[in-house]
């Protein structure tokens, strides 16, 4: 924790040099805001959540599946299907909040405010420290009143940009969402006919509809069990 603050301070120092004092003051604010959000999330040492996961990609027809999610501080995460087959975007779905903040360190920048649904949100850009991080930039939309992350947009080196939207309910006090939507860009794919051995007579209209470029994975949590203790070995 100290280290993060330390790095943040160093980052802030450099930012100060470039962006000037007014901005630096905001940056200090948003860093604090992020730290508050993080502190809220830090109440949770571990959780086990059950829910439903839906993969919504235009060219994937999949049923809603039951899942179980396990989390342990700081960044251990495991998504277990309750049977069934799930399709997730390459690189995995980072659907835990902590992941976005609790990295080795970051620089927070204020990017103004925006509306997420009916809630006004503070937009914070996080630049991870260090070069070997896959994440290049994260943009967080934070509900300042409730200290909740409403949306995040993450740009990665390997896996493009993805978006997460969170809806909160019963577990808002722990900063845990009821529903997470994970959006990402998809590429079209086409198999050679020889593999499927079928005469490709899919209607042109249906095909067109399937050319959507955005994919989504939606997880709706039904229940969380918080701080009941999960061994680290479980995530191995």
């Amino acid at each position: 924790m100290k280290q993060i603050v330390h790095i943040t301070k160093i980052a802030c120092f450099f930012l100060l040099l470039f962006i000037g004092s007014a901005t630096a003051a905001y940056a200090q604010d948003v860093t604090e805001l992020v730290m508050k959000v993080k502190a809220k999330l830090d109440q949770v040492n571990d959780y086990t959540a059950t829910g439903k996961m839906k993969t919504d990609v235009a060219f994937i027809k999949a049923p809603v599946g039951s899942i179980k999610v396990f989390y342990r501080k700081p960044n251990l995460f495991r998504l277990q299907r309750n049977g069934g087959i799930s399709v997730l975007p390459k690189g995995g779905v980072s659907v835990n909040m902590g992941n976005m903040i609790v990295s080795d360190g970051f620089t927070a920048l204020d990017a103004g405010t925006g509306m997420i649904g009916k809630i006004k949100a503070r937009i914070v850009k996080l630049l991870p420290a260090g070069d070997n991080n896959d994440v290049i930039l994260s943009t967080l939309y934070i509900d300042e009143a409730n200290l909740l992350i409403l949306k995040s947009v993450t740009t990665t080196r390997e896996n493009g940009t993805y978006e997460m939207e969170m809806n909160y309910g019963k577990f808002a006090s722990f900063g845990l969402p009821d529903k997470v939507s994970f959006s990402f860009n998809t590429k079209d794919y086409k198999l050679p006919k020889g593999i499927t051995m079928e005469f490709d007579d899919t209607d042109a209209a249906v095909k067109e509809k399937m050319k959507g470029k955005k994919g989504r994975v939606e997880i709706t949590y039904a229940a969380y069990e918080i701080n009941k203790g999960i061994a680290a070995a479980f995530f191995k």
Binding site: F59, P63, G84, I85, T196, D200
Partner: peptide, 19 residues
């Protein structure tokens, strides 16, 4: 048994096990 994962020529279908 499990869900049935199928590659159609232009899309993917995952049929739920019970279905």
């Amino acid at each position: 048994t499990d869900d049935l994962f199928l590659m159609k020529s232009s899309y993917v279908v995952i049929v739920k096990e019970s279905d």
